[in-house]
């Protein structure tokens, strides 16, 4: 038996496909990025080695700073707006029961299965100053005049609204599952003791949901950092760099500004930031659990 389970060739053959995929699709591109990050390659012609020049430039690049700031804003938007709403909705939905509960759960999640391509263009139309839904709603409330939702001051908020709206169902569903996993005996005990819904929510639901909230918050922060597709289609990072995000910026630098080397340097820094943030968040939440 022991011999069978430590047969090197069998082990090798089982992990080989996974390792090949990892090396070819993740490790090799990262190595290539590191290499090009040290060059002034434009996408065509010669690649000259320029040392740390790209990284030095990146330190003073205000567009990249803006991109990170926008990720922070988005993460705050997720945590302070989307998640509280999602938890409350999940808690309310949990009390409903019956067919209606399943119906609402289904409806809330639908935007999540729709392609970002559709969502982005749909919202472009919703924000349209001439026939857009949003300006028509404002008109119904008596506001005359057209709001330009993609002006330099408004654009980032318009983008945040779309992202918070699109991801709502996902967050809600995970909180909802978390609430369903709470032992109903606890709620019965609370109601026998005469606790009202407020006390029940803050003393039972929230504390028991802590691990779920931690997972959801971690995922929200990371997805805020990795955001690209919606912004790419909705605003392209503009006007100016007001809605810039790191992934969109590196793509633009490489394929539109023809600074392929610089784009790769951004990519390397971006990967490092993502790893640091993921590891950091896991550390923070692990330590809290021990306390």
């Amino acid at each position: 038996m022991k011999k069978l389970y430590s047969n090197k060739w069998v082990i090798f053959s089982l992990v080989l496909p996974g390792i090949l995929v990892f090396v070819f699709a993740i490790l090799a591109p990262i190595c290539l990025s590191v290499y090009y990050g040290f060059t002034d390659y434009s996408g065509m012609g010669e690649a000259n080695f320029i040392g740390l020049e790209n990284y030095k430039n990146l330190m003073h690049d205000s567009s990249f700073g803006r991109a990170l700031l926008n990720s922070l804003l988005l993460a705050i938007g997720f945590i302070c707006i989307q998640h509280p709403l999602a938890i409350v909705t999940a808690a309310v939905l949990d009390k409903l029961g019956g067919r209606a509960e399943g119906f609402f759960r289904c409806v809330y999640f639908i935007p999540n299965v729709i392609s970002v391509a559709v969502i982005a263009y749909l919202w472009k139309f919703i924000y349209n100053p001439d026939f857009g839904l949003l300006n028509n709603i404002l008109k119904a409330f008596g506001y005359e005049g057209k709001i330009n939702w993609f002006s330099p001051q408004m654009a980032i908020w318009s983008v945040l609204i779309v992202l918070i709206w699109h991801g709502f169902g996902w967050g809600m569903l995970i909180y909802y599952t978390g609430i369903k996993n709470i032992d109903p005996v606890l709620y019965e005990a609370a109601s026998i003791d005469g606790a009202d819904w407020k006390t029940t929510f803050f003393r039972i639901t929230l504390p028991l949901m802590k691990p779920v909230i931690q997972i959801n918050v971690t995922m929200a922060i990371i997805s805020a950092l990795k955001q690209m597709e919606t912004v790419y289609l909705l605003t392209g990072g503009g006007p100016g760099d007001t809605t810039q995000f790191a992934a969109n910026y590196l793509y633009q630098q490489a394929f539109k500004a023809f600074k392929y080397g610089y784009g790769n340097a951004i990519g390397v820094v971006f990967i490092l930031i993502c790893i640091l943030v993921t590891v950091g968040l896991n550390k923070i939440f692990q330590n809290k659990d021990i306390d």
Partner: peptide
């Protein structure tokens, strides 16, 4: 170790590999 390495992929942002993968 192998498991940890394979799981590392979770932390890598997909869009950072767009440029080098295009080249490859």
């Amino acid at each position: 170790l192998v498991k940890t390495i394979l799981l590392l992929g979770m932390m890598i942002p997909i869009h950072a590999t767009l440029l080098p993968n295009y080249k490859i």
